[in-house]
């Protein structure tokens, strides 16, 4: 079993098995026999006309799957939704990525796609917030905005003609992410939604579920509107004083309290447990798991143990059975 190298004892094994079986029985009600593997033929009604989508090809008049996954049909379109695969970007997706190269006028980002994504200097807001042409000086100061190995949040802008990807970060909510952890999970576990930025007020934490399977858990940062920041020039002697005070302020700013750090770890571990079990990641589920761990009085490190994993599986089975009953 994938990623399940947990030292389970006999009862835990049985409980896990039972929970997973009940999950299986629940989902087989909703989707019956739509799974295909490579080179399986997909039954279609030829007379209606078929549009072959991703993951399909034609062979001797038959539609054949080229990947393992689930058949999806939208009117005439037939395509195969892959499960475990690299990220397939769509315009407007919110993604988290890591800078791997600072190139002329652009940054290259690793985003779990088949190529590196490109973030142009011209397609992001400058730190001073003024809209203007980017000059050669801006280009030289690119490292002051993002350096190599920085984690960044951005939006997919469009595809170039050769298939490479362009990003944009034209808002205060995009940009560099600091003071937190990035988690890497399989992209099929993250669903596209209206909301990918979450501010968890009770924990003081920002959670970004990137569509590309990179997830950011970090301390909450107030979005400041830099446009207004137009400080009047001061005399030199005053300026020096204020510089010292800013360094102290900065120190205070960069300090993250222990409680927040623990919350970050707790949420990150909740996501880790969910991914080892292969459950889809949504805000509600994550919060439920965090609540479960605090209710059981578990330490953060105990969340990755066998017992908690079994508990999460049982909880999820219960949750899904309730929600399916409600639907009926």
């Amino acid at each position: 079993m994938r990623g399940m190298e947990l030292p389970l004892n006999h009862t835990q094994k049985l409980r896990l098995q039972k929970a997973l079986e009940s999950l299986e029985s629940l989902s087989s009600v909703t989707n019956s026999n739509a799974s295909v593997t490579v080179a399986d033929s997909i039954p279609v009604n030829q007379e209606d006309g078929v549009l072959k989508g991703h993951g399909t090809t034609e062979l001797e008049g038959e539609v054949v799957a080229t990947v393992c996954g689930v058949i999806e049909r939208v009117n005439k379109l037939v395509y195969v939704r892959t499960l475990r695969a690299r990220y397939k970007p769509e315009v407007g997706d919110i993604i988290v990525g890591r800078v791997i190269e600072v190139a002329p006028k652009r940054w290259r980002l690793e985003i779990n796609f088949s190529q590196d994504a490109v973030l142009m200097l011209s397609s992001m807001n400058l730190p001073d917030g003024i809209q203007r042409r980017r000059t050669a000086v801006d280009e030289l100061n690119m490292r002051s905005i993002f350096e190599e190995d920085d984690v960044i949040c951005a939006e997919v802008r469009d595809f170039m003609r050769d298939g490479s990807l362009q990003l944009q970060a034209r808002s205060q909510k995009y940009g560099k992410l600091e003071r937190g952890q990035m988690l890497t999970i399989s992209p099929y576990l993250v669903k596209r939604r209206k909301q990918h930025f979450h501010h968890l007020e009770q924990y003081g934490i920002d959670l970004i579920l990137g569509c590309n399977g990179f997830i950011w858990v970090g301390e909450h940062v107030e979005i400041k509107d830099n446009m207004i920041e137009d400080e009047p020039t001061k005399p030199d002697s005053k300026n020096k004083k204020s510089q010292i005070s800013t360094t102290l302020e900065e120190q205070e700013e960069t300090y993250t309290t222990l409680e927040t750090r623990q919350n970050i770890c707790r949420i990150a571990n909740a996501i880790r447990v969910l991914t080892t079990l292969g459950f889809s990641i949504t805000l509600d589920v994550i919060l439920e798991i965090v609540d479960l761990s605090t209710k059981k009085g578990l330490d953060i490190h105990e969340m990755l143990g066998a017992e908690f994993c079994v508990l999460v599986a049982e909880k999820e089975a219960e949750r899904r059975s309730v929600s399916t009953r409600r639907k009926r």
Binding site: L20, V70, Y188, L277, G278
Partner: peptide, 14 residues
């Protein structure tokens, strides 16, 4: 492969 695909899909849920 079929067994693996089904398992992943079932686990993922809706």
């Amino acid at each position: 492969l079929m067994e693996n695909t089904k398992q992943l899909e079932n686990r993922r849920g809706v």
